[in-house]
Design a binder for these strands. Structure first.
Length: 282
DNA sequence: TGCCAGGCTTCAC
DNA sequence: GTGAAGCATGGC
């Protein structure tokens, strides 16, 4: 893998990259992120922080609208500096994990914004992927900022995920009108807490896995599963192993109700994501 | 119409 | 500590 810059646009091109190494379709559609959409021209369009990011994957390269000054951020967000194939090959996988890996390889674990991930996964409980996307888009379109990006002949319009300040102005009814439903009180509670304790985000970013899980679970509405999702998909504790309904079924049906995740070592979360993708998208 | 979705809190035992 | 009930919403 190497990076070149388009001389005309100053956009980054990722070269010499196969879909087995990094697969945009799988990575952006596997349930770890809710703000990426693929258009009819195979462009993956998402909002990262305050910017619209556009990526299109070809057989051996990926073109982007991401400027050269954002190269480190691109690598960081998509975890492009890790060779997944090499790392996974060091693990002693059982038969089901091997099958899941073969099906899911190419998935990278993203490093998403913490505030956004805490809220999107708070919304995820007892909800479907479709509804989570719906909620996040409604929140962003109504309370975030409009941003526009030119991409060849298209004008792409998106909305930033609302800030704490923007969400602070919302009422109970505002949130109910975004289809947040039974999670509304949890969201209000989180916003009220963060208003006086925003530093906890920095604490979460700097502490270890166990400390992060216990701090996250103090929020009303965050239990084991959501805490592990936040730890995995934002804080990049790739040992985190979220157990949702799909993983529960896998454990019951494939592991007789008892899985030993210690054999997946520091990459248990990545194996979990292969399993989730294999089960939920096969 | 009934069931399900990347669960959590509360309450009874 | 464990288990069941209840919780809003949209797609199928």
């Amino acid at each position: 893998m190497r990076y070149t810059i388009d001389n005309n646009t100053n956009n980054i091109i990722i070269n010499d990259i196969t879909r087995d190494e990094m697969n945009l379709d799988k990575t952006l559609n596997c349930g770890q992120a809710f703000r990426w959409n693929k258009d009819s021209k195979n462009n993956w369009i998402g909002v990262v922080d305050k910017e619209i990011w556009i990526l299109r994957q070809y057989e051996n390269y990926i073109v982007t609208n991401i400027k050269s000054s954002n190269k480190e951020k691109l690598i960081y967000y998509f975890n492009l500096d890790m060779n997944y194939t090499d790392e996974i090959s060091k693990l002693d996988l059982d038969a089901y994990a091997k099958k899941a890996y073969e099906y899911g390889k190419g998935i990278h674990i993203l490093r998403q914004d913490l505030f956004e991930t805490m809220i999107t996964f708070l919304m995820s409980q007892f909800n479907s992927m479709h509804n989570i996307r719906l909620i996040v888009e409604k929140l962003s379109a109504r309370y975030g900022n409009k941003i526009v990006e030119k991409w060849f002949d298209d004008e792409i319009v998106r909305y930033t995920f609302p800030t704490l300040e923007q969400l602070s102005k919302c009422s109970y009814d505002d949130f109910m009108n975004c289809s947040i439903g039974l999670r509304t009180n949890y969201l209000i509670s989180m916003i009220n807490y963060l208003k006086g304790n925003y530093d906890i985000l920095n604490y979460l970013k700097n502490c270890n896995y166990n400390s992060a899980i216990s701090a996250l679970k103090k929020f009303d509405g965050i239990g084991d599963k959501v805490a592990n999702c936040i730890a995995l998909f934002s804080l990049h504790h790739v040992e985190a192993f979220p157990i949702d309904v799909h993983i529960k079924r896998i454990i019951n049906e494939e592991y007789s109700g008892n899985i030993d995740i210690s054999r997946y070592g520091q990459y248990a979360g990545i194996i979990q994501q292969y399993m989730y993708y294999y089960r939920a998208f096969k």
